[in-house]
C-alpha cells in the first residue's frame, strides 16, 4: 500500500510540474509579442516604451530557459509574481480569496450529500417504481439547468420578488456570522442543485448494484435488522464510487464555481480570475490557474487514496 501511495503522489507532483510548464508556456503559444498582446486593449497599439518596460518587468528580454527556471525558483519560494493592477503580491490575494471559494464548495458538497444520498438510496430501493421515475426526472432537470440560470432565478425569486435574502455579496464570518451564513446560503444552494443530482445518480446506480449482491442476502439471513443491512452492508459498500464522484465534482467546482461567484458577487478565487482576465493581468491569471490546477490534482489524489481506504481489496 505504501508503495502505491508513494507512486501515486510522485505522479501527482510530476503532473503539477507539467501544468506549471504549460501555464508558463501558454503566454508564448499566442502568436505575436506577449508584451504587446498583454498591453493591447481594444485594438490600440501600446507605445513602444511601455512594451519595453513590461518586457523587462516580466523578464521577457532574457532567454526562455532562464525565464523558465527563474519562474520555477520563484514558485518554490511561494512567489507568484506581482499584480499588474495594484503591484501587490499575487499569492497574498489568492490566499485571502481561496478559503471563500473552498467554503462555498464545502457548503455545496454538504447540501448535495444530504439531498442526493438519501434520495438515491430511496430510488434504488424502489427501482422502477413511481418514486424512482419522479426522482430521476427531477435529477434530469437539475442536471439540465446551468448553475448561472439557477443562481439568477434564485436572485429574481428570493431577493427581488420575495425579499427574503440579499441578492449577493459577502461579509467575513468574524464580523457578522449570521449575515455571513445567510449570504452563503443562496450560492451554495445554487451549486448544490446540480451537484445533488450527480450524487443522486451515482448513489442510485451503485446501491442498485449492491442490493442484489450475495453478501446482502447473507446479512439478512444472519437476522440483521433491515436498517442495519441497509446501513452496513448496502450503503457502506456503495460509498467508494460515491466518494469518487463527489471528489471529482468538487474538483471541477474549483473552476466551475466561477459562475456562481460571479452571479452572487462572492469574492472568491474564481471571481478574481474573471476580473484578472478582463484586465489582462497576466501574473494574476497565471497564479490563480496554477493554484487551482494544483489543488485540483491534489484533490484527485486524495479521492484515489480515499477510495483505497474504503475498499480493503484495493488496499492490499
Amino acid at each position: 500500500m505504501g508503495a502505491y501511495i508513494f507512486r501515486r503522489t510522485l505522479s501527482a507532483v510530476a503532473l503539477v510540474l507539467v501544468v506549471c510548464s504549460i501555464v508558463f508556456l501558454a503566454l508564448y503559444a499566442v502568436p505575436g509579442d506577449p508584451a504587446v498582446i498583454l498591453l493591447s486593449t481594444g485594438g490600440v497599439t501600446p507605445p513602444q516604451s511601455a512594451v519595453d518596460a513590461l518586457r523587462v518587468e516580466l523578464g521577457l528580454d532574457k532567454p526562455l530557459l532562464l525565464q523558465y527556471f527563474s519562474f520555477l525558483a520563484d514558485l518554490l519560494r511561494g512567489d507568484l509574481g506581482t499584480s499588474f493592477s495594484d503591484k501587490s503580491p499575487v499569492i497574498e490575494t489568492i490566499l485571502a480569496r481561496l478559503p471563500r471559494t473552498l467554503e462555498l464548495i464545502g457548503a455545496a458538497t454538504v447540501i448535495a450529500l444530504l439531498i442526493g444520498m438519501p434520495l438515491g438510496i430511496a430510488a434504488a430501493r424502489h427501482q422502477g417504481e413511481r418514486v424512482d421515475r419522479l426522482f430521476a426526472l427531477m435529477a434530469s432537470f437539475a442536471l439540465s439547468t446551468p448553475v448561472f440560470v439557477i443562481g439568477t432565478v434564485f436572485i429574481l425569486v428570493f431577493s427581488k420578488m420575495l425579499n427574503l435574502v440579499p441578492a449577493g455579496g459577502f461579509v467575513p464570518f468574524s464580523q457578522a456570522p449570521m449575515q455571513h451564513l445567510l449570504l452563503l446560503l443562496m450560492p451554495s444552494l445554487a451549486i448544490a442543485v446540480g451537484f445533488a443530482a450527480v450524487v443522486f445518480r451515482m448513489t442510485r446506480a451503485t446501491v442498485i448494484g449492491v442490493l442484489t449482491r450475495d453478501w446482502v442476502r447473507t446479512a439478512r439471513a444472519k437476522g440483521l435488522s433491515e436498517r442495519r443491512v441497509l446501513r452496513r452492508h448496502i450503503v457502506r459498500n456503495a460509498l467508494g464510487p460515491v466518494a469518487t464522484v463527489v471528489g471529482l465534482q468538487m474538483g471541477s467546482l474549483l473552476g466551475g464555481s466561477v459562475l456562481v461567484e460571479y452571479v452572487f458577487n462572492w469574492p472568491g478565487l474564481s471571481g478574481f480570475l474573471v476580473t484578472a482576465i478582463e484586465n489582462r493581468d497576466y501574473p494574476e491569471v497565471r497564479g490563480t490557474v496554477l493554484v487551482v490546477a494544483a489543488l485540483f490534482i491534489f484533490l484527485n489524489l486524495l479521492v484515489d487514496l480515499l477510495y483505497m481506504l474504503l475498499d480493503p481489496r484495493v488496499r492490499h
Partner: peptide
C-alpha cells in the same frame, strides 16, 4: 489536470 472551465478561461 485542469478543472474544465478554468482551462477554457485561460
Amino acid at each position: 489536470a485542469f478543472p474544465p472551465i478554468l482551462l477554457a478561461l485561460l
